[in-house]
């Protein structure tokens, strides 16, 4: 099964250099997952201050500054993985370096047919 692991944390709790180390450790994890054929994609996201929200209403496009929801913890990155089952996905989520600071939300994917292969 495919799972999206969404990493939420308070952007302000990361000390200088800490985030950099977290990125490096995360890259190691992706390489390990790749070796086991479980890696589909991953990336940190730029700060929520860079977020822009778009919605179409009555044929009009509304563009606003900011994230979908103002919360204390923000979406800061993701892993897209192939896992045996939820227990396997939980085990991988526990290995994400950012799980020590924030929360990893695990969401199984709806597997649509007809999607082109990703790059």
């Amino acid at each position: 099964m495919k799972y999206m692991l969404l990493i939420y944390s308070d952007e302000n709790v990361w000390a200088e250099g800490e985030q950099e180390r977290c990125y490096q450790d995360s890259v190691k994890l992706t390489q390990d997952l790749q070796a086991k054929g479980q890696y589909l994609g991953a990336s940190p996201l730029q700060s929520v201050a860079t977020a822009t929200s778009v919605r179409m209403r009555d044929g009009k496009r509304l563009v606003t500054d900011g994230p979908f929801a103002e919360t204390r913890e923000q979406l800061g990155g993701y892993f897209l993985i192939e896992a045996e089952d939820l227990d396997d996905a939980i085990a991988i989520a526990g290995r994400i370096p950012a799980a020590h600071k924030g929360t990893v939300e695990i969401r199984p994917l709806v597997e649509l047919t007809g999607l082109p292969p990703g790059q």
């Binding site: 896992a83 045996e84 089952d85 939820l86 227990d87 996905a89 199984p108």
Partner: peptide, 14 residues
């Protein structure tokens, strides 16, 4: 069903 909760006895460490 949807989240893939397995039908198994957990691994020893869990």
């Amino acid at each position: 069903r949807a989240a893939g909760i397995p039908y198994q006895v957990p691994a020893l460490e869990d």
